[in-house]
């Protein structure tokens, strides 16, 4: 108990980031440290979530797939030797799981009321809030109309600060140099969609 408390106060991964953080946590997790597992889950669940959603799963299915991916990871942690491969492994496994689940029931991802309601209403002035909510809705709808591959790429590169560009390319099996141009085309499609729907909202 004392040990656990000490570890909690000053875990070996304290202050680390990126691959160094993953390496330290994976090492500890292999030795049975549950806090190290929890740390990885906290750090990388947003990435796994975006991949699941970017592959066309509704939110409930995405929740289940995200959990499945983590359970599979910790079952096979010994086989994943290189901490640098962790994020790519998560992306690849999530895509595979998402496709497996998605092939059983093909659902589009429209802006449902469920989603619309999750838009937080923390803006100061109601007027500004309405305008912003309108904007957000238009952006979201344009985004939702993009081809799935665009949606996935944009979701992943929007998170680029956290997930690296290179591993996004690897996981999507795209040449590194084509990420930028492909993303540019996706954004242009989005602009076109915004323009055509502009007057109809």
């Amino acid at each position: 108990m004392t040990d656990a408390r000490t570890a909690e106060a000053n875990p070996p991964w304290e202050g680390l980031r990126g691959h160094e953080l993953y390496a330290a946590c994976m090492h500890e997790a292999r030795m049975g440290n549950r806090q190290a597992m929890d740390r990885l889950v906290t750090e990388l669940t947003p990435l796994v979530w975006q991949v699941a959603r970017g592959n066309g799963l509704d939110r409930h299915s995405a929740e289940d797939v995200v959990q499945t991916v983590w359970l599979v990871l910790f079952r096979h942690l010994d086989q994943l030797v290189d901490p640098k491969a962790l994020a790519a492994w998560l992306i690849t496994t999530t895509r595979r799981e998402a496709q497996r689940v998605g092939s059983r029931k093909q659902l589009p991802v429209p802006l449902t009321d469920e989603l619309a309601e999750t838009v937080p209403s923390t803006q100061p002035a109601p007027e500004a809030e309405v305008i912003r909510a309108d904007r957000d809705r238009q952006l979201w709808n344009a985004f939702a109309q993009l081809p799935q591959r665009c949606q996935e790429l944009l979701r992943l590169t929007v998170l680029a600060g956290r997930a690296e560009y290179r591993l996004v390319a690897d996981a999507l099996r795209m040449p590194h140099g084509s990420i930028g141009p492909t993303r540019g085309r996706c954004l242009q499609s989005m602009r076109d969609l915004l323009e055509t729907q502009g007057g109809s909202v």
Binding site: E63, L71, T118
Partner: peptide
């Protein structure tokens, strides 16, 4: 877009806790 995706389609607040429970 990043802001909108974060606002509209962030993971559920309790998802991390549920994963940790499942694990």
């Amino acid at each position: 877009l990043g802001r909108v995706v974060d606002d509209i389609d962030a993971p559920p607040d309790d998802l991390v806790a549920r994963i940790q429970f499942a694990l």
